[in-house]
Write a protein that binds this DNA or RNA. Structure first.
Length: 555
RNA sequence: AGGGGUGUAGCCAAGCGGUAAGGCAACUGGUUUUGAUCCAGUCAUGCGUAGGUUCGAAUCCUGCCACCCCUGCCA
């Protein structure tokens, strides 16, 4: 075991440690509670890692609960996709999947109880009137004229709401707290509203639905959640959360803790904006490789362990900062560098003819898929007298900046192969170099030239007659602004024009048989993944996951 | 009559009265059959700011400033 410095505990871990030490809990239970109204994104990945991570760390359990209190915005497509994403990230939820809608009967019963205790009332104010009565930051609100309705009247009215006798918006159930509270969420919040929508789980059973505030804490209590961890914007709701727990005969007393949500520069992490990108067809769906959705990153070739490592590197604190994308990219490269098999792909082919090699000669060079990882296997790379290298690797004239490039009179090492020496090159009418003529230095497979003249550089290559064509989808960042949704900018005005460039390239024959979703490092070029859906051996398709780091001095 | 949060390097942060951890980025060198990786090293006399308490303050106190969130029958 290597002695690594322990990561300092974050404030939530400390709270849990204290609770456990004080005997407040013998075990802990957390929950990840997405609303199924869109796909999960990198911000959710952090929440998932925090909640499931806490459960793992303290030997507890984490529930997956769909917070489905607003049927108008939700769909079963999303509940399926969310499950796939959580599983793919590598987490297992405790027991069955939970839905807030599982508790609609109980929640309704508790709402009736609040009415019976004189703590809730049916309010007929329109939404505009409600807004006026609520007051504002500087001014206290005023009580609704319906606040003092009798318990019997409220009971009857609420039953009529439930029975579907009222139109949407005609009235709602509110809890009687304090219209003068400085915390706006305490000014008689609505806890039930009329929505005559079909619900993806409960169908047409209900036409009234509990609000987030009325459902969340009680659901936590029902499930025995000990630590309900959410993001900072819910901090104002905590007093309300606690109010329901105190005023209702709930089976447990969960507590809410808030941490700062994840922001990353050059990307947007709000479902609303991601949905806009999908609906305006800026991208090809929620799983477009340019999307910061979990399914998009997956299709991009990001691995789940890289995403988890990134999330674990993040602070769980109350600050609201913006993490540099470079930090995400570091963890992607770090994982791929250690695990991605290597292969060769030539993006801009330049033919090299080897004059001292028989035209009908061809041989297979056995190449390890990943150095120092023999279990990753070996493949045959065919070699013959005509090969392609990348145009960028041949220079007409030698220069110090390009000391590792190929040029006439200089030697170059073919990656995993022989050493070549360039003799001449040919140009077309436009002045483009069309062919390089070279000689092969004998006995240089796996060893240096016997004359002691070692090549300075190494280039990747493909045998002409064995090359396989592939489609390459080269992705750049979607936004050209570090903060696309900052200030008074419209994030749709910050889109990069060439966020997707589709080209063709030449790959080793072995790559055509790659399994979908396998990420390779195309040596000296970058990491590319065989597309999860479109790649086949007949028509290979690779997506750029991320480029290799580059020496800035050479750019 | 506003309330709730937060300010430590370019970015993310640890620190909880004893003299500024760590990661990313950047920059120097070295190794290298990937200009990748890897290895070694550099990078805050300073903790939003002004005072105060103390032998000693990023840590305690006071004032001020800045930023984020809250006025959905969304979550």
């Amino acid at each position: 075991m290597t002695e690594e410095k322990a990561k300092p505990a974050n404030f939530i871990e400390k709270i849990i440690q204290d609770d456990l030490a004080a005997g407040k809990h013998t075990s802990i239970t957390t929950r990840f509670p997405p609303e199924p109204n869109g796909y999960l994104h990198i911000g959710h990945a952090k929440a998932i890692c925090v909640n499931f991570g806490l459960a793992q760390q303290f030997g507890g359990q984490c529930n997956l609960r769909f917070d489905d209190t607003n049927p108008e915005k939700e769909e079963d497509e999303y509940v399926q996709a969310i499950q796939d994403d959580v599983k793919w990230l590598g987490f297992e939820w405790g027991g069955k999947i939970h839905y807030t809608s599982d508790y609609f009967d109980q929640l309704h019963e508790w709402a009736v109880l609040l009415i019976k205790e004189g703590k809730a009332y049916v309010c007929d104010l329109s939404s505009d009137q409600t807004k006026e009565y609520r007051g504002n930051f500087e001014k206290a609100g005023t009580n609704s004229p319906f606040r003092e309705r009798s318990i019997d009247e409220n009971l009857a009215l609420f039953e009529k709401m439930r029975a579907g006798d009222f139109d949407e918006g005609a009235c709602g159930l509110r809890v009687k707290i304090d219209m003068a509270a400085p915390n706006m969420s305490l000014r008689d919040p609505y806890i039930y509203r009329i929505k005559k929508a079909n619900h993806h789980q409960t169908g047409n059973k209900w036409c009234i639905y509990p609000s987030y505030d009325f459902a969340h804490g009680q659901s936590d209590a029902i499930e025995g959640i000990s630590h309900s961890v959410c993001t900072l914007e819910f901090a104002d709701h905590r007093p309300l959360y606690d109010w329901f727990i105190e005023n209702l005969p709930v089976p447990a007393t969960p507590h809410q803790y808030e941490f700062g949500r994840l922001n990353i520069n050059y990307t947007v992490t709000s479902k609303r904006k991601l949905r806009a990108l999908v609906e305006s067809k800026v991208v090809n769906g929620w799983d477009d490789p340019r999307m910061p959705t979990i399914s998009g990153m997956r299709r991009r070739g990001y691995t789940s362990s890289a995403i988890r490592n990134f999330c674990d590197s993040l602070a769980v604190a109350k600050t609201d900062g913006t993490v540099d994308v470079a930090q995400l990219e570091f963890f992607i490269r770090d994982d791929l560098n250690q695990n991605a098999p290597r292969a060769m792909c030539v993006l801009n082919p330049l033919k090299v003819v080897i004059s001292n090699m028989a035209a009908d000669h061809s041989e297979n060079i056995a190449v390890a898929n990943l150095q120092d990882r023999p279990e990753m296997g070996v493949r045959d790379v065919p070699f013959s007298h005509e090969i392609y290298i990348d145009q960028a690797d041949f220079k007409e004239e030698y220069s110090k900046k390009f000391k590792k490039k190929f040029c006439v009179g200089k030697r170059i090492r073919l990656r995993h192969g022989y050493v070549l020496e360039a003799e001449s090159f040919e140009k077309d009418e436009q002045g483009n170099i069309t062919q390089v003529n070279a000689i092969l230095i004998e006995n240089t497979l796996g060893c240096d030239p016997e004359d002691g003249v070692k090549p300075k550089g190494v280039v990747h290559w493909i045998s002409c007659q064995h090359a396989v064509e592939t489609e390459l989808r080269v992705y750049n960042r979607l936004f050209n602004e570090a903060n696309p949704d900052g200030g008074n900018k419209d994030f749709l005005d910050c889109l990069t024009q060439d966020s997707l460039v589709t080209t063709t390239a030449l790959i080793e024959p072995a790559l055509a048989n790659a399994e979908q979703e396998t990420v390779f490092q195309f040596e000296r070029e970058g990491y590319y993944v065989a597309d999860r859906f479109d790649h086949t051996s007949e028509k290979p398709v690779f997506n750029l996951t991320i480029g290799l780091r580059e020496d800035k001095a050479l750019a």
